[in-house]
Simulated assay, not measured.
Amino acid sequence: MKFERIHFLASDAPQAQRALRRLAKRYGNAKADDADVTVALGGDGLMLQALHECLKSGLPVYGMNCGSVGFLMHDLVEPDLQDRLASAHETLIRPLAMIAKTPDGKKHERLAFNEVSLLRQRSQAAKLKLVIDGQVRLDEMSADGIILSTPVGSTAYNLSAHGPILPIGTPLLALTPLSVFRPRRWRGAILPDDSKVRIEVLEADKRPVAAVADHDEVRNIASVDIAVDTKRGVRMLFENGHGLAERVLNEQFKY
């Protein structure tokens, strides 16, 4: 496929803004409605923003690193961009769909490409009940919170919380506790990606909890229901030898 009309999306970082000016001068900068592809210039935070935008536009997205981490990005190489886009291969990324319910019964629906995390809002630990596919797996967990991560997000917050890295393409999700106090030795679980996860907040008035889908927060929740959205997804473009699967594999051998 030829990508002649490129829409550039850049973070506010000076390096990204300078790259945007150079690339727009070289290739033009099409509006999203008229483009064939979105090229994201920044770090992984900007890539998350691009994924959410491309979920609406339907455009494939390709990233170039102008940030600090850039796990999801390629190196910033400006020449021959259209040729590299044309030869790149696609990986379909599906988000997690989160429905957070507050004590007044109101539902808040959000999407997350990296993870859904539940976090305590006060000094006291959160108390949570974990239900998987309708079956109670933990009656009560006391912790700072918990993360449900996709393979894409498994190298982000999940990894920093000592959760497992999931190779791209595996039909799995990582459920990782944050500073768990009870059960003392519980270290999380790996779930099939068709699992329906429900997390209920115990003692919500005394121990309030926020739910965060990527960067979108809902505070003072009573419960969340989380599942992979099988009807929506975004096509990410990766050059040969720089795919997510290879990056995830390399990450497991760093020290």
Rank of each mutant, 00 (worst) to 15 (best):
1 M>G: 10
2 K>G: 14
10 A>F: 03
13 A>R: 13
15 Q>P: 01
15 Q>H: 14
17 Q>F: 11
18 R>M: 11
19 A>Q: 02
25 K>E: 15
25 K>Y: 10
29 N>P: 03
31 K>T: 13
32 A>T: 13
34 D>L: 14
42 G>V: 12
42 G>Q: 07
50 A>Y: 02
53 E>D: 13
55 L>Y: 05
66 C>F: 09
68 S>V: 04
72 L>C: 08
73 M>H: 06
79 P>S: 10
80 D>C: 09
80 D>V: 13
84 R>D: 11
86 A>E: 08
88 A>N: 05
88 A>M: 04
90 E>L: 07
93 I>L: 13
98 M>Q: 06
98 M>F: 07
103 P>I: 05
104 D>P: 04
110 R>M: 15
119 L>F: 10
123 S>M: 09
126 A>C: 03
131 V>R: 01
133 D>V: 05
140 E>F: 00
142 S>W: 04
143 A>R: 00
147 I>W: 06
153 G>Y: 03
156 A>F: 11
159 L>T: 05
159 L>R: 11
160 S>E: 05
160 S>T: 02
164 P>K: 03
170 T>Q: 06
173 L>V: 01
177 P>T: 00
179 S>N: 11
180 V>K: 01
182 R>M: 10
185 R>V: 14
194 D>V: 06
201 V>G: 00
202 L>T: 02
206 K>N: 09
206 K>F: 02
208 P>L: 08
209 V>C: 07
212 V>S: 03
214 D>E: 10
215 H>S: 15
216 D>H: 13
220 N>P: 11
220 N>Y: 12
221 I>S: 10
221 I>W: 11
222 A>N: 09
223 S>C: 12
231 K>F: 14
232 R>T: 11
236 M>P: 13
237 L>W: 10
243 G>I: 08
245 A>W: 14
247 R>I: 13
252 Q>D: 14
253 F>P: 10
